[in-house]
Amino acid sequence: MTLLVLCVAALALISSGVSAALAAALAAFRARIDALAPSAQARLLFAASVAPLAIAILILTAALAPSFGWISDHCYGSDPHAHAHICGHHVAAWPSLFLIGIASLVTARAAWFVASHVYALVRAAFVRRALDAASREAPETGARVLPFAEPQAFVLGLFRPRLYVTEGLARSEHLGAVLAHERAHVARHDPLRRFVAGLGLAFHLPGVARTLGAALARTQEMAADDHAARSLASRVRVARALVALARARAPATALAFSGSDVPTRVAALMDDRPRSDRPTPVAFAVVALAAIVGAASSAELIHHGVEMLLGVFGS
């Protein structure tokens, strides 16, 4: 039990540190990140969203290595009461109230994030059933058509998100551009990425979590715009569809969904300078692999490091 509290406290300390460092790095490189292609930005923001949890788990796993008998145990050399002792064989002294406090806080917050995401999934299934009952299939578009005059389109779902358009849009000249955008979300697995990133945000500092979440949503929209513009070979068409649908917005509409920012997106579409799509997914995979190898090969160092970190916060 004390070991568990120590581990969660260490997870909280490490992830908060990583979150703060990432926020600082993203702010420092803001201009360079903004110059990247939206798809690369979205990739970067996704990685940043899950990084604190991933890094904290990696470090903790390495720190627990002595308990798995992976590296030599140093239990006999150290007094378990001298500083925090991460070891499966001994019952360590109770950690300080501060560590117990942050361990409880981070557990409660993570539980809240998981619960609200699960609740959203359940609600999404219910909303989907309602929409399916109210809509008809339009096989030629791969979308379902809702009987509303206001032109609008959206995707709903996680693994196989479904595409919905309104009757008003189906009759409009903008259908093609809008469908291309929504199909891009599906092809890019945007809903799944947002969902996973959203869970990862539970381990960011609260302010950073909000900023990152909003930034990821925005860049995903811009990446889908970009994708649509490429598949139609026209940035103008997508931009016109955006303005047209924003203009057709009925006051006090029943179709009020959030997720985008029209002026920013139009401006981005009108800026057709070539942008770098790096770092590529392969680059992210290489960095992740390097981190795992690095952590595994310096498990002893990490083990002592984490014990010292916990020691600083009074254990």
Partner: peptide, 8 residues
């Protein structure tokens, strides 16, 4: 939660 995203 990322489960719904609308065009505008």
């Amino acid at each position: 939660a990322g489960l719904l995203s609308a065009f505008v």
